[in-house]
Amino acid sequence: FNLPMSSFARGDYKQPNLNAVGHQIAPAICYEIAFPEQLRANVNAGTELLLTVSNDAWFGRSNGPLQHMQIAQMRAIELGRPLLRATNNGVTAIVDTQGKITHSLPQFETGVLKAEVPLVAGMTGFARWGQTPLLLLCTLVLIGAVIRRLQLR
């Protein structure tokens, strides 16, 4: 990326939580919400809230903003944290720890979303171990399939 006046540089994979009035918030900018392991690396037992901000204008009137929202909902479920999502013209919403949208604004309309959000602490299984159990299970199934295949010969 070499444009005049460009000062972008890659940040650290693991970032400290934001501290907002004593509350710990794990932020994800735009497409970072699509990477479960990266967000997981930035959530700890003291993290109370997930926050994602995004410019969804480039999606236009496609299903992109809705899919982006669904991806964000999965992070709330996996990490067991409420999620605040703010976009310029996509889906601005509040998601509970079960992935349910509790409050939202209509797409393509300017507005302010206000709600009380219960904060959560602690760690889910995914927050502790990530995708490791799933990868181990897939490996065991693959090994079992290879053994079965060899036995049938």
Rank of each mutant, 00 (worst) to 15 (best):
T52R: 02
D56T: 14
A9D: 10
G64C: 05
V21H: 14
P65Y: 05
G22V: 08
V21Q: 15
Y31S: 14
N55Q: 01
M5V: 10
H68S: 08
Q15D: 11
F59W: 02
G46A: 09
G60I: 01
W58K: 03
M69L: 13
N2M: 08
F35N: 13
A34N: 15
N88R: 08
R81D: 08
E32L: 12
E32W: 13
T52W: 01
P27I: 09
E78W: 04
G11N: 13
R10G: 09
Q38R: 13
A41D: 07
M74C: 05
A45K: 10
A57M: 04
C30S: 15
W58I: 00
L3R: 15
V21I: 12
A20Q: 04
A34V: 07
E32D: 15
A76T: 03
S6K: 09
H23R: 15
T47W: 06
V53R: 00
A76G: 07
L83M: 11
M74A: 06
S7K: 13
M74R: 15
E32N: 14
M69A: 09
Q38K: 06
G64H: 02
A72V: 01
F8T: 11
A72G: 06
L79F: 04
I71N: 09
M5A: 14
N42A: 02
L66F: 05
P27L: 10
I25A: 04
S6L: 08
Y13N: 13
T47K: 07
E32C: 12
N63C: 02
L83P: 05
K14S: 14
H23S: 14
H68W: 02
F35P: 00
G46C: 00
V53L: 05
Q38W: 10
R85Y: 08
D12T: 14
V53Y: 00
